[in-house]
Every structure is written in structure tokens, then in C-alpha cells.
Amino acid sequence: MSNPILKVENLHVNFNTYAGTVQAIRDVSFDLNEGETLAIVGESGSGKSVTTKTLMGLNAKNASIPDNSRLLFKDRNLLDLKESEWQSVRGNEIAMIFQDPMTSLDPTMKIGMQIAEPLIKHRQMKKEDALARALELMKGVGIPNAEGHINDYPHQWSGGMRQRAVVAIALAADPEILIADEPTTALDVTIQAQILNLMKDLQKETGSSIIFITHDLGVVAGMANRVAVMYAGKIVEYGTVDEIFFNPQHPYTWGLLNSMPTTDTQVGSLEAIPGTPPDLLMPPKGDAFASRNVYALAIDSKEEPPFFRVSDTHYAATWLLDERAPKVTPPLQIQKRWARWQEIQGQEA
């Protein structure tokens, strides 16, 4: 299980703009193990989309990445690749499922052909062979009567069906890593579940690793093995899905979990994290979350917290875990989650 296929080390991504340098990714490191699903969670602007674009080599031209950042995949640093070398990685070894199926497909090209394109490019298949394989892929992603629809254009399909086509495109060349960038955000809830189940089933078949980007913790619970929580261009907490859900340590993770409505939530009392994320043109000193954090300590505004070990798989970057820190009582919802964690631990022991 813990055999990393991709290692991200000290990733920094800066964007040079007229207003100055935006530090979109500030020292992110994580491993992606073979066959696992890693969820990257965070609110808008936390840097999760930039992380995925960097993994695909698709950042905007004004992005700059320092030399000590490394993306290790199959004994090479992807950040050293030339554009032509990237082209043989994209869609072939690392593929991506896009967010909005309504705009991600070319409106003027037949869907079968759009699925066949990566095969023609990466497998040097003839058009007819690639289309035959595209038909199999369409069946594989659950498109009914695929034979009758291979020559359809995108506008003839519903959003859910189009997202299946987008999944088929990503799977076409049998990639080792699949990056799903909020693949269900633009879909109805019922269709969301279908697409998520489809991805799980396909992962079982192909054994590929998935990086699942989302802001929806509800989706994470059913999909991921491990979770990394991102805030202001950094990972602030990571662990297994149970550790993050039932033993969260970072106040930001508490906030995220708290703002997820449950059946206990009273009518008219949706929780939110106060304030807005910091401006990454000038990231604050210390803990970037401090200004929105009711549990912030004096040291948070002076010094950035390192990762504190919670377990072998679970780390969180908050001074609250320092032995000198005062013991704080988390919100009630989180206390309940901790109690549940104790039960789980008790059962396992």
C-alpha cells in the first residue's frame, strides 16, 4: 500500500503579476501511494487547483517554480521536463478529469473522436482502432447504447452523461495517476453519486491512483483513503480519512468540519469560518489562519507552526499541539467527533 508513485517535495508556485508576486503554493509536500485516493481539501483560493495544474504542467505562463521544488514520478523530476516531454506525460501517465462537463468538451467534435484522441496521440493507434477502443470506454463508463451515441456531439448529451465522457477521456490511455479537479461540483446531487461510484469502480479495475480535489468534505468521506487539508497555499493537516474526520487537530479543519451541515444542525444555524483567506500577495507572518482562528495563540502571529506528529500517518501544523500550549476545548461538534474516535480506537484495541 504505502508505495509512493508520486512524491511532491517542497513545492512552491509563484505567479508574477503587475501587483507583485502571488505565492499561490508555499512549500507543499505530500506522497501519493499506488492505488490510493488522496483528497486535497480546502476553500476557494487555498491553492488546490494550482497544485493540480502544476502536476499536469499546465500552469499559466507567469508561474515560476523555484529549483528546489520537486515532483518525483517514475525516477524523474517532472519540473525538469520540456514541453514536448510533458506532452507524453499528460493524458498518458497522468490524466485529469475536469470540473465542468458543460464546457470541457469541444462542441464541434464527435464525442467518440474526443475519447479516441489520446489513444491516437499516445498509443499511435489508427483512427478506426482508437474509435473501437473509445466505444469500449464509453460502455465502461456506463453510457447506455454506446454504439448509437459514438457519433453524437456534446450538446446532444446531459451534464451527467458528458461527465462520463470526460472520465472516459481521462481513462483512455490508462494513466497511472488520475487527477480529479472537483469532478462533481457542476452536477446534480444524484448524478454526483453516480459519477463518484463510477470512479471508485474504475479505480478497482485499473488500480490507478487518484488525487481528488474538492471543497466538499461530504464527498471526501466516501472517496478518499487519505486527506490533506490546504489553507493559504500550504497543507495544514493530513492523515487518513478517519483521522481527519474523527480526530481533527487543526482549528481550520475543525472549521471545515463544523461548516458541513449534519442532521443535528438546527434550522437556521449554518456554521461558517469567519473572515476570508489571506491575500497571498503578502502572506501574513506566522500561522496564516491565525486572524480567523478563535483559538489562536500569541505565538501564531510571530512564528509559523511546524508539523506536529499525531500518529505515523497523521500530522498537523498548529501550535496547539505543542506541549507548552494550553489545552483548548474544541467546538461541541468536534468534541463529539473525538468521542467517536475514542470509540473506534477502543473497538480496534
Binding site: 499528460r90 493524458g91 481521462a170
Partner: peptide, 8 residues
């Protein structure tokens, strides 16, 4: 964007 992600 998707065409780029295909490796074209």
C-alpha cells in the same frame, strides 16, 4: 484546457 491535458 482538456485538449492540453490529453497531451496534444
Amino acid at each position: 484546457q482538456l485538449a492540453k491535458a490529453k497531451g496534444l
